[in-house]
């Protein structure tokens, strides 16, 4: 039972990560390779605050959201003002460098040894410690995250985002401040990653930089694409499929060392295959990625 709940919590974390990426990439059309880095910034903020300052969970979460937003602005503002596509490079560089700082700033983050013993959250007197507790917290966070995404995408703001994805010039001619929209949605996406970051940190109670690599970013992208970009339920479906898959491999009896690589080969391959033959993913809109 605990095993099943563990899987469900992981699915929840990836639902939040890929849904927030979906706002940026699926709806607005800007592919960010830095999502795992923002996730890591959120996770480390919560971990370091609760270990060093002993502040309550909610305070840590709010600070994580703000700090993720600030980093989002630092990456987004210089690169999204420019017409040329420097954004993807700035995001990529941020991903590599955030990992490098987490890994090398030993005096603060303990580097590759990671941070153990992160205290469990306490929400208004509710001590979250057992598996079912965490599942409930996950469900609450997922609902909040999906509600935010739903509200954004079903608003005039979301309509402009889709217009930007389809035709930037047209959006400009309609008087929409394209750069402003891109920056704001990117910052928003970065802020949302603080939710899964805080959840993951307190749930596992240990973090190290290896959870926030480029590969993790690509995994989040794969979930979004394979599930279906530009649709609210696409990332949810993608998260269920891609998180369950390695567990299935384990049932088949594949040794863990090989299973980790096989899993990545599978989703990398699925990404290539999707691009070649089914860009809309499992439930995506047919033409989000087509010309």
């Amino acid at each position: 039972m605990d095993y099943l709940i563990h899987i469900l919590i992981l699915i929840g974390i990836y639902v939040m990560l890929s849904s927030s990426l979906n706002l940026v990439a699926g709806y607005t059309g800007m592919l960010s390779i830095a999502h795992a880095a923002f996730y890591g910034v959120g996770a480390y903020t919560v971990a370091l605050m609760s270990l060093n300052l002993h502040t309550p969970f909610l305070v840590n979460l709010v600070c994580a959201i703000i700090i993720c937003g600030i980093f989002g602005a630092v990456v987004g503002i210089p690169s999204l003002r420019i017409k040329d596509d420097y954004f993807i490079i700035a995001a990529f560089a941020f991903q590599i460098i955030a990992f490098s700082v987490m890994n090398n700033w030993v005096s603060f983050t303990k580097g590759p040894m990671g941070l153990p013993g992160i205290p469990q959250p306490n929400l208004f007197g509710w001590k979250i410690s057992s598996y079912p507790d965490f599942l409930l917290l996950t469900v609450i966070m997922c609902v909040v995250c999906l509600l935010i995404c739903w509200r954004i995408t079903h608003s005039p703001y979301g309509r402009v985002l889709q217009a930007i994805r389809e035709d930037e010039t047209f959006a400009l001619s309609l008087g929409k401040n394209v750069a402003g929209y891109k920056i704001s949605v990117f910052v928003l996406g970065a802020m949302l990653t603080a939710l899964p970051g805080a959840l993951y940190t307190t749930y596992i109670s240990y973090i190290d930089p290896s959870s926030f690599t480029v590969d993790e970013s690509i995994f989040i992208i794969s979930i979004m694409i394979i599930g279906g970009a530009g649709r609210l339920w696409g990332p949810v479906l993608g998260a269920v499929v891609l998180v369950m898959l390695p567990e299935l491999l384990r049932f088949v009896g594949m040794p863990n060392s090989i299973a980790a690589n096989m899993r990545q080969i599978f989703y990398g391959g699925a990404l290539v295959v999707c691009m070649l033959w089914r860009p809309q993913g499992l439930v995506g809109k047919a033409d989000v990625l087509r010309k």
Binding site: R151, I152, S155, P156, Y157, R159, V160, Q162, A163, E166, D167, F170, L174, G175, K176, S184, L188, K285, D287, V288
Partner: peptide
């Protein structure tokens, strides 16, 4: 045109100064 959204939404997109297009007022 924004081809993947409805005809109506194309028109609605064209109205200027919509408060719902601002994240904060949203």
């Amino acid at each position: 045109l924004i081809r993947q959204v409805s005809v109506l939404e194309n028109v609605m997109l064209s109205f200027r100064n919509q408060s719902g297009e601002n994240l904060v007022s949203l």
